[in-house]
């Protein structure tokens, strides 16, 4: 493995300096939200049109999930019942934006815990780990923790209760994957970890892309827009790492990579879509309290 760990540490530090600048820029939208949240709590009523639009969007999203699950839920009428519930006044009492932000928080909670679990594995966060993968997992976990804090702060700014639990729909999927990872040998485990991380990162990115047209609060939109591209970047790097691992070329996971050695197709593996899809986006209220 050819890697200068000192140089890598320097890059991470440099990245953290830049990150601190970016954190400062995220404070603007959050400060705006505090003002808006105070106005909201001061007595503005929920917009019934907004609530109906939210219910329609969730019905569409739930229908999509049901179709992917084989249509069983749709056939039993569960989707219609859930969608009706989402559109009900009781459910909407917390406000559309708050629900969207709570769901985003629940995804971030799961992402943080997943990376934390992965870093407990010797071949991801231990002495036998590839330094680049270890640095990526560590930094990415920190970035998700920042996203979580930002979404939670935004939630409370709008008068909601911050979500601290993982998205209930994805927990069983993650648990099952983690169980398989812990039983797998290191050679297969790394690939399984990357596959799980990819799934979670894609869910996060697609959910936030989808949320952009659901959010009504300008600051919540700005915040979400500043995060979705970062999740997409995680996806890009994970796709590149996955390709190298699948080819048995873990030694080529270096920073910088040995570009001259790589086959032509490796140049495009990290960004398969010209337009980011939303088919795997979580329903906007899935992680709401």
């Amino acid at each position: 493995m050819e890697i200068d760990e000192t140089a890598l540490s320097g890059l991470i530090e440099e990245s953290q300096d830049t990150h601190a600048d970016a954190l400062r820029s995220a404070k603007g939208p959050l400060a705006d939200m505090v003002d808006l949240g105070q106005q909201t709590r001061a007595g503005s009523a929920l917009d019934p049109d907004e609530n109906r639009a939210f219910a329609v969007e969730n019905r569409r999203r739930l229908g999509s999930i049901a179709r992917r699950a084989g249509g069983l839920l749709a056939a039993t009428g569960v989707i219609a019942a859930i969608a009706d519930y989402i559109g009900s006044p009781a459910f909407a009492a917390s406000g559309t934006d708050v629900q969207v932000l709570q769901t985003a928080s629940s995804i971030e909670v799961l992402a943080v815990s997943t990376y934390k679990t992965a870093l407990g594995l010797p071949y991801i966060g231990g002495s036998s780990a590839n330094p680049v993968i270890k640095a990526f997992a560590t930094t990415t976990m920190g970035q998700h923790a920042d996203h979580l804090a930002a979404f939670q702060s935004a939630t409370t700014s709008l008068g909601g209760t911050k979500q601290t639990k993982p998205d209930p729909a994805f927990v069983p999927v993650a648990d099952k994957a983690v169980a398989a990872i812990t039983k797998a040998p290191a050679s297969q485990g790394a690939l399984l970890v990357v596959a799980l991380a990819l799934e979670l990162e894609n869910i996060a990115a697609e959910t936030y892309v989808n949320n952009m047209s659901l959010l009504t609060n300008a600051s919540a939109k700005k915040l979400t827009a500043s995060i979705m591209g970062v999740e997409a970047q995680h996806v890009a790097i994970l796709l590149a790492v996955q390709a190298l691992l699948k080819a048995g070329d873990a030694a080529d996971i270096t920073l910088p990579p040995p570009v001259a050695k790589l086959p032509a197709a490796a140049g495009a593996v990290g960004f398969p879509n010209a337009f980011y899809p939303t088919t795997n986006a979580a329903p906007a209220s899935q992680g709401a309290l």
């Binding site: 890059l11 991470i12 440099e14 990245s15 830049t18 990150h19 600048d21 970016a22 954190l23 820029s25 995220a26 640095a135 990526f136 930094t139 990415t140 920190g142 970035q143 920042d146 996203h147 930002a150 915040l223 827009a225 500043s226 995060i227 591209g229 970062v230 970047q233 995680h234 890009a236 790097i237 590149a240 920073l255 910088p256 990579p257 570009v259």
Partner: peptide, 16 residues
Amino acid sequence: YVLGKYPVPNAFTGVS
């Protein structure tokens, strides 16, 4: 990544 820089340098993308 190709340039040898950390590939996801910011937790939040900016608009500067």
